[in-house]
Design a protein around this nucleic acid. Structure first.
Lengths: 208, 208
DNA sequence: AATAAAATCACCCCGTTGGGGGATAAGGTT
DNA sequence: AACCTTATCCCCCAACGGGGTGATTTTATT
């Protein structure tokens, strides 16, 4: 089995599509398919889901590349780049709405395409993993008048993951009473006064 | 006051830097500064913080563009692109670690630079706003055996924001008992059994 | 018009949680 | 040695939240 990353190319110009395909093939990517129109693109996305996509915006169908991108965001969730001749304000504004990983304007440096693809896939993967955005003690303490101590942070983390005081006590091999003591101190410092208030507070501090 | 977006250029080749600068200036960006080495880059980032940065990787200083990117991530938090001649595996792998918004290889299409900058800034802004990631009823229900009703979702949202049942009751003009009833139903459907368990659950469902 | 689903409300009970104290031991600093 | 912070633990108690059970009204849907 190959561990090459599969890329779908959506490009209505056969010559260009073929070029891209060959270039990707020669550089450690596997082209899962070339779609010359949106119908083919949707079909490929469903049945032969790639790891990423390179999308032309102007296609000779009623649905353009941005529609495909919207579909990807809603149903497939893979990173994608736009590769197009148009970079006027209107097109760009529409492109922004679907949050592409990159936007390359033709004529383009093929190395830019490769590099952008790699970065896009890498960023996307690390974002997925950070779905459980680990709390950073540094970051949180930066926003608190009085910083959390290590133990307190540890308890806060466990509470953040939605477990009860007894479970926290078990996992840390600390008495339940001590957990409560730590939590009291945490509440003082974070100005929270409920456990769920704390979770919300931590979420917000991490987002700053 | 100008509402143009300020961009810092870090590029050790004066000719190229100047070119980029002029091009950006002519296209609705304001070049906050050109830094020819990392020291200047750090200084500019601190004292004249831009909205985005274009970074060359290979600089003639001991610190390269990736170091600058790391600094940006840690201290400044703005989007940035790499614009460089090198796209070998090693450089790319190092670049991946700092999660650039884009990676453009020289020689480059200037329109690609512009478009990439716009997209980068737009994506970054919308990510920041999603710090308060609004819950999507669609997205959550997609992962539940039995979907939340509208009222239930509304209550879940309020709970997600860390307020008490009484406060939820006040805000929705519903009796406290009814809030509790809705919550019971929500717990059944989400398989949570505490309010904070629910918050964690919702966070995870939204991340999928 | 009949039926199902959703929304509204009530009461009881108990467990966890949160806030009030108070206390001792370990580690680091001056 | 004196001092401060951190970490550990205990008890009490009120309050909020979660679970059980039941019931009525409103809104869709057929």
């Amino acid at each position: 089995m190959s561990n090459k990353l599969k890329v779908l190319i959506v490009e209505d110009e056969p010559v260009i599509a073929e070029n891209i395909s060959i270039y990707l093939d020669n550089n450690d990517f596997e082209v899962s398919a070339i779609a010359y129109d949106s119908e083919e693109a949707f079909a490929q996305l469903k049945t032969n889901t790639p790891d990423a996509a390179v999308l032309d915006i102007n296609l000779e169908s009623d649905q353009d590349g941005i529609d495909i991108a919207a579909y990807i965001n809603k149903e497939i969730q893979i990173p994608f780049l736009f590769l197009t001749s148009y970079s006027d304000k209107h097109t760009l504004d529409k492109a922004k709405q679907v949050k592409p990983s990159g936007y390359i304007v033709k004529p383009f440096n093929e190395k830019t395409l490769l590099a952008s693809l790699e970065i896009a896939i890498s960023n996307f993967a690390s974002e997925k993993n950070s779905s459980q955005p680990k709390l950073s003690m540094e970051k949180i303490n930066r926003h608190l008048l009085s910083p959390l101590t290590e133990r307190e942070f540890e308890v806060a983390q466990l509470a953040y993951n939605g477990i009860t005081n007894s479970q926290i006590a078990e996992q840390t091999f600390i008495s339940l009473n001590t957990i409560k003591t730590h939590l009291k101190s945490i509440y003082l410092k974070t100005e929270a006064n409920t456990r769920y208030g704390l979770i919300v507070q931590l979420r917000q501090l991490m987002a700053k």
